[in-house]
Measured scan of single mutants.
Amino acid sequence: TTQFTVHSPEQAEQWKEYAKQKGLEVHVQKKNGTWHVTIH
């Protein structure tokens, strides 16, 4: 599991796309103005 924080919805979307291409599961949670992205 990879977990990191991004600071814009655009970055979060890019990671979603990346994960989809790799066939991975991605979870994005918005918290205090940042987005926590978890890739399984």
Rank of each mutant, 00 (worst) to 15 (best):
V28Y: 03
L24I: 06
A19R: 01
Y18I: 05
W15K: 01
P9K: 15
Y18Q: 02
T5V: 14
V37M: 03
P9M: 15
E17I: 11
T34W: 10
V37L: 05
Q14W: 15
L24N: 02
E10Q: 09
K31Y: 12
K20M: 11
E13T: 06
T34L: 14
E17D: 08
G33F: 05
T1H: 09
T38M: 07
A19S: 04
I39S: 00
W35A: 00
V6I: 05
K30Y: 15
W15C: 08
P9L: 15
K20C: 06
K31F: 12
K20F: 09
T1Y: 14
Q29W: 12
G23H: 05
H40A: 09
T38H: 04
V37I: 14
H27G: 03
S8Q: 04
Q21D: 08
P9V: 14
A12G: 03
F4M: 05
K22T: 07
T34N: 08
V6N: 01
F4V: 07
Q14V: 10
K20V: 08
H7F: 12
H27M: 09
V37Y: 02
T1L: 13
E25G: 07
V37T: 01
V6L: 05
E17T: 10
A12I: 08
Y18P: 00
Y18W: 15
G23K: 05
S8P: 01
V26F: 12
S8T: 13
Y18H: 03
G33W: 04
E17V: 09
E17G: 04
W15P: 00
V37S: 00
Y18R: 04
E25K: 12
K22L: 14
K22M: 14
V6A: 05
K31A: 08
T34P: 01
T2F: 15
G33H: 06
K20R: 13
Q3I: 11
T38I: 12
K22Y: 13
Q3P: 03
G23S: 04
K20L: 11
H7W: 10
T38R: 05
K30R: 10
T1E: 08
P9G: 10
H40C: 12
F4T: 03
I39A: 01
V37R: 00
N32C: 11
W15G: 00
E10S: 06
Q3G: 06
T1F: 14
T34I: 14
V37W: 02
T38V: 09
T2H: 14
